[in-house]
Amino acid sequence: MQAFAQGPGQGRCIEITSRQERLGVAGSYAHLLDVVPSTPYVAFADQDDIWEPQKLEWALDTVARCPSHKPTLYCARQYLTNADLVIFQESAPLRRKPNFPTALTQNIATGHTVLLNAATHTLLRNNPPPPSILHDWWAYLLTAAAGGEVIFDSRCVSYYRQHAHNTIGATDSFIKRGWAACRRGPKVFMTIFRSNVTHLLNQPENLSPPALRLLKAIAAARTFPARLRTLFRYSSLRRQRFSETVVFRLWFLFSR
């Protein structure tokens, strides 16, 4: 990084030295988002993933079409590779358009594909993610909760290495994802779900009226009948796959 800053990046790189301790993935990104100078766009860069040469061009061209005052987040598909960058598959395409209810149930914004505009960056300043989720899901949640624009590019824009040291890995295998969810069980997921709801409700100034109504309905649904009414009223509270939606709704209905 120092060699790059002294060469091709001369005059364009800023080293952040205000925190010396290890912050973890989410804490590191939160700190960078707090201290990076104001700029029209912010892109997340993970150290072991490779971008297509046109990745930023594609993202900027897409986001620039949206009003600058409106929070906007761009994300995209990826090539899934092994540690040597040998592609073994593409990440899954979206089956449903992203919106705030679906953002509550599932993250579709893989960090190293993300580009934010300044309005979303403002939402993230001094606003770290809740426990147990990372910066990319939090950026997606805040953008959608504010009534912003979430753009998912169906092109694969990066090479996502899968190796033994991934903080968060990826798989397009429905069976593997389902088995991993069953092993974790409803408690882990529903704890994260409720934590996200609580953290968003604590900042009503950043919420659109529809998002605020949904969050209040979820928080107030403490009994089985109330939760059932919430699911009927907000049918878009679902995941990308039908089978995953069924599991989520069962967990939502029966969790304590």
Rank of each mutant, 00 (worst) to 15 (best):
Q78L: 07
C182D: 10
Q240E: 15
W58G: 03
L94N: 08
R177E: 06
R177G: 10
L237S: 06
R125K: 15
A26M: 02
F252W: 14
V114I: 11
T230D: 02
R241E: 08
S243L: 12
H69M: 03
L231I: 10
T39L: 02
I87M: 05
K176R: 14
G147N: 07
Y160W: 13
Y140D: 11
Y140K: 03
A43Y: 00
N202Y: 12
F174T: 12
T110S: 05
W138P: 00
L56P: 03
F224A: 03
D136M: 06
W179L: 15
L116D: 06
V114G: 00
R19N: 03
T191Q: 14
P40T: 05
Q162N: 14
H112P: 09
P8M: 06
A139L: 01
Q106G: 04
A45T: 09
Q162C: 14
V247T: 13
P53E: 14
A217G: 10
L124G: 08
P186I: 02
V157K: 00
K187W: 02
W137H: 11
P93H: 03
P101N: 12
T122W: 05
I168G: 06
V86M: 10
W58Q: 09
N117F: 03
C66R: 11
R249Y: 05
F44P: 02
F100R: 05
S255Y: 12
I50Q: 11
R249N: 14
S28P: 04
P204H: 06
W51S: 07
I108W: 02
R241K: 07
A109W: 00
Q6I: 04
Y74E: 13
Y74A: 05
W137Q: 07
G169A: 15
T62S: 13
P93V: 04
A221M: 07
T17F: 10
R96T: 07
N166Q: 15
T102A: 08
H112V: 00
T171R: 07
